[in-house]
Write a protein that binds this DNA or RNA. Structure first.
Lengths: 107, 107
DNA sequence: TAGATAGTTCAATATTATTTGAACTATGAA
DNA sequence: TTCATAGTTCAAATAATATTGAACTATCTA
């Protein structure tokens, strides 16, 4: 992963509403959750949620699929994993575990 | 770690200059590097660097110590590790490894 | 078809971040 | 004490983000 992608993903997660959205979707799992339900559960206005979902999607952290008139959003676990790998390799070496050797998250 | 601290740390890293600073300091190790050398190596204006160092420090990601008229900055590996643990637990479960069981980074 | 529901987009506003250069503080050396 | 160095702080300008409500598109149901 390049530094620009890492910055983009970190920025996507560096906002309370978006981090809450992402956490909720991770909890929900790969099937995802329709936008309306996310909005309702987190108390976010629909248009604001759309904006945040787009930010997360543009950063590559969310996948979506349309089902009828619902749009289901789910985490892209590979992308999140890549981010954790990047942080582990470049931002946490030098204190014991050598870069690239740390086991991170969900493989 | 609470969500607010996670957001603060993510925001601190979600900026190209700051992520570069943090990476450089991780590479350098626990002894740290004086502000001037960071500025020179990364080509950042002193006042801008001060601003970014403060952001990273406020987020808890950097330690500093004064030595003569130099101020050495070094990563707080524990803080970074806590962030990775948070992300691993809350933002990456549901895809194999159960939350809290993933091995992250530099223990 | 019309009406209702699910989401998005847009424009306006408000809020936060970032950069710049000048002024400032503190330490060390002559 | 005076000068130079290392860094920080401040205020102003700019740029990037986030929120709101209204208008819009697409899908479903009657």
């Amino acid at each position: 992963m390049k530094i620009d992608a890492a910055v983009a993903r970190l920025a996507a997660l560096a906002q309370a509403s978006r981090l809450s959205v992402f956490r909720l979707l991770v909890e929900k799992g790969p099937d995802g959750m329709p936008a309306g339900e996310i909005a309702e559960r987190l108390g976010i206005a629909p248009s604001a949620l759309s904006f945040h979902l787009k930010e997360l999607s543009n950063a590559g952290l969310l996948k979506s699929r349309q089902e009828g008139r619902f749009i289901y959003y789910a985490p892209d676990f590979k992308a999140m994993n890549a981010l954790l790998g990047y942080l582990s390799d470049h931002c946490c070496a030098g204190s014991g575990t050598p870069a690239g050797k740390a086991k991170v998250c969900c493989d």
